[in-house]
Amino acid sequence: MICCQTRRGAAVAAFLTGCALSSAAMAQDWPAGPVHVFVGFPAGSSPDTIARIVAEPLAEALGQPVVVENRPGAGGVIAVQQMLARGDDSFGININGPLTTAQRLIPDLGYDPVADIAPVGLIATSPLVLAVGADFPADDLAGFIEAAAEPEAISYGSVGEGSGAHLTAELFANAAGVQLFHIPFQSYAEVTTSILGGEIDSGFMAPSAALPQVEAGTMKMLGVTSAEPFAQVPDVPVIAGTAGLPENFRAELWNAFIAPAGTDPAVIERLNAELNTILADEEVRERLLAMGWQAQPGTPDDLAQRIRDDTALWGGVIDTVQAAE
């Protein structure tokens, strides 16, 4: 790493400063230059928009520019790698995949989601909705499960093998004791087209992808995967506890602010505090909700717990899927 050697002077200076001042005082002076936030998806995607919604007030609070670096690729994994490679003052805003399921799905991940990442805080969560075409025979979850009684009678589209949409559908199928037929797509747009065209029966989709179709009367939403009704689609019943499904059924996608492991704890604390202030802002909450995301302020430990829980949850689903193949 030549870049580290050439930065030795700066590093030595920083070290000396660090010795002289207390860690907390340093976090007050931090940051000395622009802060970089690596986002795993292209400009205009929802993680990118979330990052920009957060970056703007964050830059104001820190008094330094916050540069959003789009490093799309491998479902967000490339951005995590680049954040780790770049080192100082690099952070990431990323989705759950690279932190919870990537180590199971990508053989040469190049990092350990627990050992190499320091959680800063959760930003927002989004549930998925179970959507079917308007002419689907059932109107509720119980009817859907009944229609799916025969193995593989009902097909569903996902946004790829191992995607949140795929794993959520399998989690649901396990919980409901049915066998659904998986057909992978590349985007919710393709899944929507295919449901409208009558090629597939259903799909677990982002609420904002299904909502316009539901308003136009071409699709129906049968259930939502969050623990409580979701503000963007308040009328859709939660899956948990409905039609004989377990009370603790919950599957959510999320976006989180992360840092490389070894980042000064005072810096993480500062960032977490700023993040929570931003997420408490009513305008920010509304902008997120319009895109289908619920702001979720919390501590770094909350995020760490979330990563642990979801790694276990999705790991279990991946085990079942792989065993079935």
Binding site: P42, G44, S45, A216, A290
Partner: peptide, 20 residues
Amino acid sequence: PIMALMLGALVIHGIQPGPM
């Protein structure tokens, strides 16, 4: 991807493209 970007720009402005 470019169309997706434009769609994103609409959504930011609170316009939901779609059948309606």
